[in-house]
Design a protein around this nucleic acid. Structure first.
Lengths: 220, 220
DNA sequence: ATGAAAGTTGAACCACTGTTCAAGTTGGGA
DNA sequence: TCCCAACTTGAACAGTGGTTCAACTTTCAT
């Protein structure tokens, strides 16, 4: 568990380049193209392995093999099993947001944006089923990373809701609670109609969800 | 877990007594008061241990110790680590439903029922924080149990939505999608405002969520 | 060409823990 | 009292798999 006092090729600690992030979270930064390629190969292999087998069933030896590198190389670039996992969570977290945000921004109005966002999320989940599990599993392996992921999405969501409210588009209400409620909706719909079963079209699910968010269920 | 609707004194179907073959599902049934006490002690200890440390950090030796029994006794009543875990998931699943359903049924109308259900769920989660994690973690340890849990809740929810729709209370829409959306809302609100942070009152959160479900967010 | 830094290698180490089992204890029915 | 099925016990087993390390290879600036 504890990192060895010194690591032969590199200086003792703080190898994260001018990295702003804390400690070993991001893993070491390669200093050559060669190293970059290896690190990338490990990360990709880890994504496959964790996605397929889950954190605890995944093995370092298997990751190394899949990446076509030796076990030792793994430990050149990552401090531990948990470290790669965290790197992966951060990576996925970014990917999800980058894939959903543009869809929302491109929409003409709020309701359309809601719908587009859910649809984009569903499509992302379907295209990255295995990988998406990584974020969910981080709740039990790296809870802080899990929290950070959803906390950051919720914050963005809450602020956009507050803006819409300022424009008179939304009724009064606790925007933080609403943001978490909507996020939960998305996640569960993603699990049920993205990961488990694709028989419903993403747009149909998104339309139903967006209407629920906008109009509620009550008959009018 | 044991005392379900039916608990015959003798093994229901799997005669694992001498064969030790098929008992994984529910664990073996004790034939004496003594055995019942031991089995219960193990189950309770397992709930504590899994709740506190999560599936993989939890240890059989620790569970046995907490329960005040020998490791061997553990294997008298459960086939494996996963077997106790599954028993626990089933137990929790039942507890959640039994704690939420009455609150909904007691409500005068649908909106009130929605609100009461969410509040009851939030309160349950707050009172069983550690244990509630067990259900979430089952997604990665016993996915079928996880699915069964949510699938059964969703089915109940969808059917009650369909009934309400039949009475003209709800607008048209895919009830299955709606059920999953609402479930996701609840789960995330439970996580955020039940497990992580109790600073919001359960009723306030429930009111906001229930109004979202009923009326939507759009300003009127 | 040359040396040092950067990167690679994989067998071996070792701590950890789920599971087994043979021997012992308990308790209630005959 | 005797007996036996039910139950208990915990040391030992066994497989796993994360991590280490010392030797080796590649790259590249000088």
């Amino acid at each position: 568990m504890a990192p060895s006092p010194n690591t032969p090729p590199l200086s003792p600690k703080g190898n994260e380049v001018a990295g702003s992030a804390a400690g070993h979270a991001a893993g070491r930064q390669p200093r050559s193209t060669r190293g970059q390629k290896t690190r990338r190969a490990i990360l990709d292999a880890a994504a496959l392995e964790f996605g397929e087998r889950g954190y605890h069933e995944a093995g370092i030896a298997r990751i190394a093999q899949r990446g076509g590198v030796a076990i030792g190389s793994f430990y050149t670039w990552f401090d531990s099993k948990e470290a790669v996992f965290r790197a992966l969570v951060a990576d996925m977290s970014m990917q999800v947001r980058e894939s959903v945000a543009p869809a929302i921004l491109a929409a003409p109005d709020r309701l359309a944006g809601e719908r587009a966002g859910i649809a984009a999320f569903l499509r992302f989940v379907r295209a990255h089923k295995a990988l998406y599990r990584i974020i969910d599993e981080s709740a039990f392996v790296a809870e802080d990373a899990y929290r950070a992921h959803y906390e950051s999405i919720a914050a963005g969501y809450a602020s956009s809701l507050t803006q819409a409210h300022g424009r008179g588009e939304l009724s009064d209400g606790d925007m933080q609670v609403r943001a978490w409620a909507i996020m939960g909706m998305n996640v569960f719909l993603g699990l049920r109609f993205g990961v488990w079963d694709e028989s419903h079209s993403a747009d149909a699910v998104a339309a139903t969800a967006a209407e629920l968010i906008s109009e509620g269920l009550r008959a009018r």
